[in-house]
């Protein structure tokens, strides 16, 4: 058997691949959190729950309407985004003048409701979701076997992340977003409807979570609690990366996923807590986060 540092390479690359996939989800989710936080100053605790809702939306579309993976990849995030728009319009928008912690508490309550309701309806066990036909099978890369679907998840989330980065940093719409993050009052005085922008930003951020949910469905099964522990890890990712930068969120997410994968090979017992340990170390060395700015 081929080994590297005394570890079988098959196992090593297998775990690194898993880590990269987890990292893709961290990146997608922390990206959404960062976009929302920039505009609304709200930490969206419901992010993990909406990731779960995205996965369930795909599953339900298939169960009840026979709608398959590819349309669901568009429809489910749209539905989640729509839910986000309603949530922002009816509830979150009432809290902007108060302490930011109230946004956290409200979305925490929403997360409990969503997870509780889906658990009540569909039980705590997972529902399987098939891999789409076009992505069955895999590639032998020589040093490891790469299932096609997993390769697709990594590519799709990378494209989404980079596309979001481009849209925010390089387009006119992104310029509005950046400007409104900095000084919403003035942007409004230039004739731009900032409240609508805020609503759409929240919708877009949670739609990213919904998309991550659809991508995850064939890998992890569709489970009401699939987002519940994930969101806490993503919070740690956000603290580590700092919320100042979009690219920072992406890089930190992928990097920590890889690190977790590595830990699974080297010291499996610690793989669950490695992200939190990194967070503690980063807080000691650079409290604002790796890519963050001190405010």
């Amino acid at each position: 058997m081929v080994t590297l540092f005394g570890i079988p390479t098959q196992a090593l690359f297998g775990q690194l691949l898993l880590g990269l996939i987890n990292g893709s989800f961290y990146a997608l989710l922390s990206l959404g959190l960062a976009v929302i936080f920039g505009m609304l100053n709200v930490i969206n605790f419901a992010h993990g729950a909406l990731y779960m809702v995205g996965a369930f939306a795909a599953w339900l579309l298939m169960q009840h309407f026979g709608i398959g993976y590819w349309p669901a990849l568009l429809l489910a995030p749209l539905l989640v985004g729509l839910f986000g728009v309603v949530l922002e319009k009816t509830m979150l928008s009432r809290l902007y003048k108060l302490d930011h912690l109230y946004g956290l508490l409200l979305t925490f309550g929403v997360a409990l409701i969503l997870e509780g309701a889906f658990r009540h309806w569909y039980g705590a066990s997972g529902q399987p979701y098939p891999i789409p036909d076009a992505l069955r099978g895999g590639q032998n890369l020589g040093f490891m076997f790469l299932p096609n679907y997993r390769g697709w998840v990594i590519v799709a989330s990378l494209i989404t992340c980079l596309g979001t980065w481009y849209a925010i940093e390089r387009t006119r719409l992104g310029a509005y977003l950046r400007a409104a993050t900095e000084n919403p009052t003035l942007v409004q005085a230039f004739g731009i409807n900032v409240p609508v922008m805020v609503t759409l930003t929240y919708g877009f951020g949670v739609a990213l979570a919904g998309l991550a949910g659809v991508l995850a469905a064939p890998i992890y099964q569709v489970n009401p609690l699939m987002g519940s522990n994930l969101i806490v890890v993503v919070f740690a990712v956000v603290v580590i990366g700092g919320m100042g930068s979009i690219l920072g969120a992406i890089v930190t997410g992928l990097g920590l996923g890889l690190l977790e994968g590595l830990a699974k090979v080297v010291y499996p017992e610690a793989s669950n807590i490695v992200v939190f340990v990194v967070m503690a170390i980063v807080l000691l060395i650079k409290p604002a986060g790796l890519f963050g700015r001190e405010r």
Binding site: A175, R178, A179, T181, E182, N183, L186, Q188, A189, F190, G191, I192, N193, V194
Partner: peptide, 21 residues
């Protein structure tokens, strides 16, 4: 946001140049 749309331009005292732009 409709005020500016009528054709009024505003240059604030603090100038309001955006640092991220």
């Amino acid at each position: 946001h409709r005020v500016a749309r009528l054709g009024i331009g505003y240059v604030p005292e603090e100038r309001g140049i955006f640092s991220s732009l």
